[in-house]
Every structure is written in C-alpha cells, then in structure tokens.
C-alpha cells in the first residue's frame, strides 16, 4: 500500500481505504481461524499476475490451426486437449472450444457475473465484467461487435455463448490467410485475447 510521506502525522499512518480495511479484516480473521493459509494466498496472486493469461489460450489456438489431430481432440474434449498443454485448474474444469468458420462467428459472455476460462485466458478484462457488455452481448451481438470495430456481413451467423459457473468457452478464431509458412510460436503471436472471446477477428 503506498503511503504519502509528505502528509502524515507524527503518531500514526493514514489508514487505507474503507474497502481495503474490510478486506484486511476478512483476511486476518480467516487466517487466524486457520481457514486460509497466507502462503497459499500469495501463491494465488502470483499465479494470476504472472503465470496465467491469454498467451496460454493463444498456444492452444495455434496448435489447433497447425495440428488437425489436436484440433479434433479439442472438438471432442476441450478440457483434456487443453490439459495436454499443461493448462489446468480452477474455472477450466469444463472447457468447450467453439470454432469460427467463414459462415459462423462465436461470441462469449457471462450474462450473470464474470465466468471466464482462467487457465487459458487469465482474468477477464474490465469490459467483460461490465453490465453493458453482459446485457448487450446477447440482445445485440452485432451492435456490440461493431463497437469493437468488427463489422460482420449479414450472412455470417453470430452464435453467443453464455458462460456459467460450470462451462467455459474458448473461441478458436479462423486462421488468418497467408500464414502457411508460420510455425506454432509465430501463429500464437497472432492470436489476441479479444479474438478468443470473440470480440475481435484476426
């Protein structure tokens, strides 16, 4: 917590915000009661700040583009296929891969809260958690996509997937043209987070 050393009282420190104090209170009580281990809390923060993120999902997509057998396994059982690359854990227990095709675009939302496939995409961006996106993605997916700069011809069907606490979706974008010469690492670099949520085309 940052402290301003120019503005302080000799006898004490300015307290953090009310919400920070509430969290500190909750954490200290739960630790004291032996309900959570502080080392485990640190490990969780470390993992989400540095280890999981959309680069994981990008590797899954790149492998699906380059390896037809892997793509088929991803279709049959996305959770297992993703685990092959070492991406497992909370909020990735039941993954479904949805493939964009020339006639079909997939868009993922969580209308009720912010369910999101953590092991492959990390934590969701702010807009994904916001009421406008959560409410409008289902009602007006074309309008939402247009706001992301994606204008789809009317003949392309849009399928919206509403995530739940149980099932999480990963969009497999179409492989960009003229990428035949690229290896998996180079392909993965083309895959964006928004592409895997469905709010971008590659």
């Amino acid at each position: 917590m940052a402290h301003d050393h120019h503005d302080h009282h000799d006898h004490g420190q300015d307290p953090p915000s009310d919400i920070a104090l509430r969290v500190k209170a909750l954490e200290s009580l739960l630790v004291e009661k032996g309900l959570v281990d502080p080392a485990a809390l640190d490990a969780i923060v470390e993992r989400f700040e540095h280890k999981v993120g959309p680069r994981n999902g990008a590797r899954v997509v790149a492998k699906a583009w380059s390896d037809p057998a892997y793509r088929e396994r991803l279709r049959q059982d996305a959770t297992a296929a993703i685990a092959e690359l070492g991406y497992t854990g909370g909020q990735g227990e039941h993954m479904v891969a949805v493939e964009n095709t020339p006639g079909m675009h997939n868009l993922v939302v969580c209308t009720l809260c912010s369910c999101y496939p953590w092991p492959v995409l990390g934590l969701p961006p702010v807009w994904y958690k916001s009421p406008p996106y959560r409410s409008r993605a289902v009602i007006d997916p074309r309008g939402v996509l247009a706001e992301f700069g994606v204008t789809l011809p009317a003949e392309i069907e849009i399928r919206v997937w509403d995530s739940t606490a149980e099932v999480r979706y990963l969009v497999i974008p179409e492989r960009p043209a003229n990428t035949d010469a690229l290896d998996e690492a180079a392909l993965a670099a083309l895959v964006t987070r928004n592409g895997m949520i469905g709010t971008a085309r590659l």
């Binding site: 953090p16 909750l26 959570v36 281990d37 969780i44 923060v45 989400f48 700040e49 909370g90």
Partner: peptide, 14 residues
C-alpha cells in the same frame, strides 16, 4: 489495487 488481489485470492482459496 492490492486489496482486489487479496479479495480474489481469499475467494479462490476458500
């Protein structure tokens, strides 16, 4: 902010 990380981690751990 750090409190967000703490609240997140508490939830995951509980």
């Amino acid at each position: 902010e750090p409190w967000q990380a703490q609240a997140f981690a508490l939830t995951v751990q509980l």
